[in-house]
Amino acid sequence: MKGILLVNLGSPDSPDPKDVKKYLGEFLMDERVIDIPLVARTALVKGIILNTRPKQSAAAYKKIWWDEGSPLIVISERLQNKIQQQVDIPVSLAMRYGSMTIKKGLQELVDKGVDEVLLFPLYPQFAMATTETITVLAEELRQQYFPNISIESVPAFYNKPDYIEVLSNSIKSHLENKQIDHLLFSYHGVPERHIRKSDVTKSHCKIDGSCCETPSKAHEFCYRHQCLEVTRLVAKKLDLKEATYSTSFQSRLGFDPWLLPYTDRTIERLGKQGVKNMAIVTPAFVSDCLETLEEIAMEGQEIFHEVGGQDFITIPCLNDDVAFVDLLSNWINKWTNTKIETT
């Protein structure tokens, strides 16, 4: 019997600093998030970050926390429930970090008689700190606790035409009847070394002005290429004029080089250059969360207004939008009988 395990990032159980500290500890100790030797990672995370950051992050979570709980969790549960109504096989939900573990999600499916699992990371683009850490952990859990099941993973879907159409239509609908000078595509940032580590050719990714546009096998696992490709495909779909849109990367941590340009500095630059009305969309996320609701919608807007900007429109993630639910349900229904296409 087949079943689906949707997997998103995760969230603290509450915005209390103790719960935030526990969550951040698990998240930041992941070797695919902070990819440095264990001794150095432990010293950095437990010796420095967890002594300062939990209070700051807890304050940010409190700003965006809903009565029902964490926005990311609530939205993901809504998505799961709506998909379940459109498919005939069990659909479970798990988080990579936090109390809604992948192990619990797999167990839930096994208890329903599932022995073929479609692992569905809710990330359009591949990254070692998102998709890869989910698939690696799921396989480790399968070997240790669920040896009688098989797991197939959904590949990155950043360039699938039906996804681009849904994303483009969402952006278009939220900008209808609005005068926008600039549309910014903001993606979650990663250290540059993650791009090089994910390069299966070991030579293509130079993070220069051309490697992401030059065809290569490396693109299958290149987060930067896939982000830029989403921007390009959506801009083409919406017939956006050159210079009226751009790409940036947010949420950097530490002092190592991260993907450029940075979102906060881009917002500031656009405002100083005279952009009065801008919109921002975050296509690395399918569910609104701390990074979209607080970092972008609140902090980003504040930066824009400080430099003279006027209207700052934050376009919601796809969340549990009907078209997105239909899209994922269609993919799942196809897999129920065959397999999802990878191109």
Score class of each variant (00 low, 15 high):
residue 1 M to Y: 11
residue 4 I to C: 05
residue 10 G to Q: 04
residue 17 P to L: 10
residue 17 P to F: 11
residue 17 P to K: 08
residue 19 D to A: 11
residue 22 K to L: 13
residue 25 G to N: 11
residue 26 E to C: 01
residue 32 R to S: 03
residue 34 I to F: 06
residue 43 A to G: 14
residue 44 L to T: 09
residue 45 V to F: 06
residue 46 K to W: 03
residue 51 N to Y: 11
residue 52 T to L: 15
residue 60 A to R: 15
residue 60 A to G: 09
residue 71 P to Q: 06
residue 73 I to N: 07
residue 73 I to T: 13
residue 76 S to L: 06
residue 78 R to V: 07
residue 81 N to W: 05
residue 82 K to D: 13
residue 94 A to F: 01
residue 95 M to N: 08
residue 95 M to G: 09
residue 104 K to T: 10
residue 117 V to H: 08
residue 118 L to F: 05
residue 119 L to F: 07
residue 119 L to T: 00
residue 120 F to T: 04
residue 135 T to C: 11
residue 141 L to K: 07
residue 147 P to T: 06
residue 147 P to R: 10
residue 149 I to W: 08
residue 153 S to P: 01
residue 154 V to I: 12
residue 170 S to V: 00
residue 178 K to P: 02
residue 179 Q to E: 14
residue 196 R to A: 08
residue 197 K to V: 08
residue 198 S to C: 09
residue 208 D to P: 08
residue 212 C to A: 12
residue 216 S to D: 11
residue 219 H to S: 03
residue 227 C to E: 05
residue 230 V to T: 15
residue 231 T to Y: 13
residue 232 R to Y: 08
residue 233 L to F: 02
residue 246 S to Q: 14
residue 247 T to V: 14
residue 248 S to D: 01
residue 252 R to N: 02
residue 252 R to G: 00
residue 255 F to R: 15
residue 256 D to H: 04
residue 261 P to E: 02
residue 267 I to P: 02
residue 269 R to F: 09
residue 272 K to Q: 14
residue 273 Q to A: 13
residue 274 G to T: 02
residue 279 A to G: 10
residue 281 V to C: 11
residue 281 V to N: 07
residue 298 M to K: 15
residue 311 D to L: 14
residue 312 F to M: 02
residue 312 F to W: 02
residue 320 D to G: 02
residue 321 D to P: 00
residue 325 V to I: 08
residue 332 I to N: 01
residue 332 I to W: 01
residue 334 K to A: 11
residue 340 I to T: 11
residue 341 E to D: 13
residue 342 T to Y: 07
